[in-house]
Design a binder for these strands. Structure first.
Length: 237
DNA sequence: CTGTGGATTTGCT
DNA sequence: GCAAATCCACAGG
């Protein structure tokens, strides 16, 4: 999978810094990175950083598992996507420009976080399913109700676990621009080279259960669903 | 206006 | 392995 050339303006180079002075490495991704079909963006997103600047410190994790959800303009359509029946108040951000956060609540107690793809009007997106914790581990454990020093897998392995660990909620974070240095929530590239990538069907959905749109780093400790086995494998780089 | 069920996690059997 | 927890978007009447 070839990497997209990344031209970043100087004002985007500053790493996020909070009141404690801690920073997150890497630089913001250009919007063009996300202005492509989600099945193409999803594997390229593996290895990138998700960083949340909070008053008490930076919470950050490396993306190790994602799922692509296709907009209703696709043929065949993706009946598992929230956007598949067209725009609604809940999913409106999916139909906006690329590089924005789509955060929704599920089962009354959890949140899931997506990143919008494609151009305005096309509702492709990527669900972030698992992170490898990189910064703010103690706070993540606190947010998750776990003891300090809890394992990485317990912290951020799962789409709602990572939202809880990273303090991501719909009211605050839905619709945020992830590619703006003024934003408290950013996707960043620290030049980490992803290794082998596996492709499988998506997890936990009722429709389109066979579409191979789940991407994960092979063998990574934090990838969720150890039960689900590989459909096929490919290499990145 | 109401009924239904979900891109989940956790705890108990 | 299974079901509870617990909210609200949205489809249907």
């Amino acid at each position: 999978m070839e990497q997209v050339a990344q031209e970043v303006r100087p004002d985007q180079r500053a790493a996020p810094r909070d009141r404690t002075g801690s920073t997150v490495p890497g630089r913001l991704l250009p919007r063009a990175f996300f202005e492509a079909p989600p099945e193409q963006v999803a594997p390229r997103l593996l290895g990138k950083l998700l960083a949340h600047r909070t008053p008490t410190g930076v919470l950050a994790g490396r993306i190790v598992e994602v799922e692509a959800y296709l907009g209703p303009h696709n043929d065949p359509p993706d009946p598992a996507a929230h956007s598949h029946r067209g725009p609604t108040p809940r999913n409106l951000v999916l139909f906006g420009p690329a590089g924005y956060a789509y955060v929704y609540s599920i089962y009354g107690r959890y949140y899931c976080m997506n990143i919008t793809c494609e151009i305005e009007g096309r509702a492709g997106c990527i669900l972030v399913r698992a992170l490898e914790p990189v910064a703010g581990l103690a706070t993540m454990a606190l947010n998750r109700g776990l003891a300090p020093g809890a394992g990485a897998r317990e912290l951020t392995s799962g789409p709602s676990r990572l939202c809880q660990a990273m303090s991501l909620v719909r009211l605050t974070h839905n619709g945020l621009d992830l590619l703006d240095s003024a934003s408290d929530l950013e996707v960043r590239d620290d030049a980490f080279a992803a290794g082998r990538i596996m492709v499988t069907p998506r997890i936990g959905i009722r429709h389109a259960v066979d579409m191979p749109l789940r991407f994960a780093l092979v063998g990574h400790e934090c990838v969720s669903g150890a039960k689900s086995f590989n459909l096929k494998c490919t290499f990145v780089g």
